[in-house]
Design a protein around this nucleic acid. Sequence first.
DNA 1: ATTGCACACGTTATAGCATAACGCAATTGA
DNA 2: TCAATTGCGTTATGCTATAACGTGTGCAAT
Lengths: 132, 132
Amino acid sequence: MNAPALTKNQALVFEVLEKADGPLSAYTILDKLRDHGFRAPLQVYRALEKLLEYGVVHRLESINAFVACAHPDQNCHSHGIVAFAICESCGHVMEFHDHEVDHRLMDWTRRKKFKAEKTTIEIRGLCEACAA
Amino acid sequence: MNAPALTKNQALVFEVLEKADGPLSAYTILDKLRDHGFRAPLQVYRALEKLLEYGVVHRLESINAFVACAHPDQNCHSHGIVAFAICESCGHVMEFHDHEVDHRLMDWTRRKKFKAEKTTIEIRGLCEACAA
DNA sequence: ATTGCACACGTTATAGCATAACGCAATTGA
DNA sequence: TCAATTGCGTTATGCTATAACGTGTGCAAT
Ligand SMILES: [Zn+2]
Ligand SMILES: [Zn+2]
Ligand SMILES: [Zn+2]
Ligand SMILES: [Zn+2]
């Protein structure tokens, strides 16, 4: 999915996520945008829906939060499954791809004739700095 | 974590999950147990907390639901990361393990010195029957 | 036996996450 | 012009999860 020009709300939400140093919940985004006229959760969720569709934002299922894609230049979709390591102490997120993991999971789905639509890989734990 | 004898509430919640043919939300479980005296979400969540700890129930992060472990005989923890394929049409869940995937993810975490605590792998899509 | 502790449980209230449904305005394309 | 699409704002609602308080029970250490 290519990203067309963002609307005002989409651009505001994306900007907040880009500037954040970690994932944000929809309601946290809302609070950060109240000064810009945001009043209701739907304004955030509708923008997020598009940004997810365009692939410039990812949703972290295990913590109900959203994060700007770490590889803005590339198209994350084209790299297969996106995986995340989420530090439960400082909140930092590392985004990575592993083709071998993709292949193993795709092998499994092909064997089972399962039509995969969306795959989530999230590792929660402690980053190097926080584990010390 | 070995599973000690379950308490009454834990046994009731586990039984509901075992008999279900798919994942259930905590509130769905609550509704199914109202006849047995359940009145509040916490009764379900507290039981689930223990069942998750014992490894006999898994939480599906991407759909906020819970499912009985498909490998009750074995200890799922000992098989490394548990992965799930979730049919978005019929709700059926397939649980599987893949050591190669585990190794790839563990390699990544070791390189990054990330201390993994809990890893989620969930594939959402259509099962063979529903994809036809 | 009494005390102290751990644990499960019940209840009420609250916090946090997400969507339904309505209507309006701007854009586009026939 | 007319219809269809899309974004937007608002209100209300629903779903998911936990905080905080108190009760009772079993069990061990004193
Ligand atoms: Zn990305
Ligand atoms: Zn950290
Ligand atoms: Zn299992
Ligand atoms: Zn199915």
